[in-house]
Computed example of a mutant assay.
Amino acid sequence: MYKIPESVLVVIYTEDLQVLLMERADKHDYWQSVTGSKDFPEEALAMTAMREVAEETGIIVADTGGIVPASNLNDWHVSNVYEIYPVWRHRYAPGVTKNTEHVFGLLVPRMTPITLAPREHLQCKWLPYREAADACFSPSNAEAILQLPHRVKL
């Protein structure tokens, strides 16, 4: 089954603009925020974001029973279209070379526990937002993080 070329990027941050970054398991020293594709074409982007956050960090975003309330997840209404890195193109249908990424922000409490998915990420770290942007391998991820002070609802 091929990946759908429509995804989310979720910048997870704290009130003091510390940003969570995770190192990819399949690419040493590639640091990023939460990312992931829709599971099916009709999946709502907010649901994709909540699912990916749970899968990659163990943070449950929900109105009831979640670690973080769903109201802390904000769609920034920013979409990036980018060329899929050649190393990952085999995951998509033949001929698919571009992905549309939708950007979200997620405010979490300072000491929120993180449980990484070991097949996806090796380690994580919290960095001040400018340092986090500098550490990202993805230009769209770095740009999203740099927009954080202008996007947050604190």
Score class of each variant (00 low, 15 high):
residue 120 E to S: 15
residue 129 Y to S: 10
residue 153 K to G: 07
residue 45 L to K: 13
residue 26 D to G: 09
residue 6 E to Y: 11
residue 128 P to E: 08
residue 73 L to V: 11
residue 9 L to T: 12
residue 40 F to L: 11
residue 99 N to G: 03
residue 122 L to P: 00
residue 100 T to I: 15
residue 134 D to W: 06
residue 79 S to M: 15
residue 129 Y to F: 15
residue 133 A to W: 02
residue 143 E to C: 00
residue 54 A to Y: 09
residue 1 M to H: 09
residue 1 M to R: 06
residue 50 M to V: 15
residue 139 P to M: 01
residue 39 D to S: 15
residue 148 L to I: 07
residue 29 D to P: 00
residue 31 W to E: 03
residue 109 P to V: 04
residue 59 I to E: 01
residue 55 E to H: 08
residue 49 A to N: 06
residue 151 R to I: 01
residue 6 E to G: 09
residue 8 V to S: 06
residue 133 A to G: 02
residue 121 H to F: 13
residue 36 G to T: 09
residue 7 S to E: 14
residue 62 A to F: 12
residue 23 E to S: 02
residue 134 D to E: 11
residue 124 C to P: 00
residue 82 Y to N: 07
residue 66 G to H: 05
residue 61 V to K: 00
residue 134 D to M: 06
residue 149 P to G: 08
residue 104 F to P: 05
residue 55 E to Y: 03
residue 152 V to G: 01
residue 135 A to C: 08
residue 154 L to N: 14
residue 134 D to N: 09
residue 27 K to N: 11
residue 129 Y to I: 09
residue 86 P to E: 13
residue 52 E to W: 15
residue 84 I to L: 12
residue 60 I to R: 13
residue 59 I to D: 00
residue 133 A to S: 06
residue 19 V to Q: 07
residue 111 M to T: 11
residue 67 I to V: 10
residue 70 A to M: 07
residue 46 A to K: 11
residue 112 T to D: 06
residue 147 Q to T: 04
residue 54 A to D: 09
residue 134 D to I: 01
residue 34 V to P: 11
residue 73 L to A: 08
residue 145 I to Q: 01
residue 121 H to V: 03
residue 9 L to C: 14
residue 11 V to T: 12
residue 152 V to H: 03
residue 128 P to R: 07
residue 129 Y to G: 03
residue 7 S to L: 02
residue 7 S to Y: 04
residue 20 L to E: 02
residue 53 V to K: 02
residue 90 H to L: 07
residue 110 R to C: 05
residue 54 A to W: 04
residue 103 V to T: 10
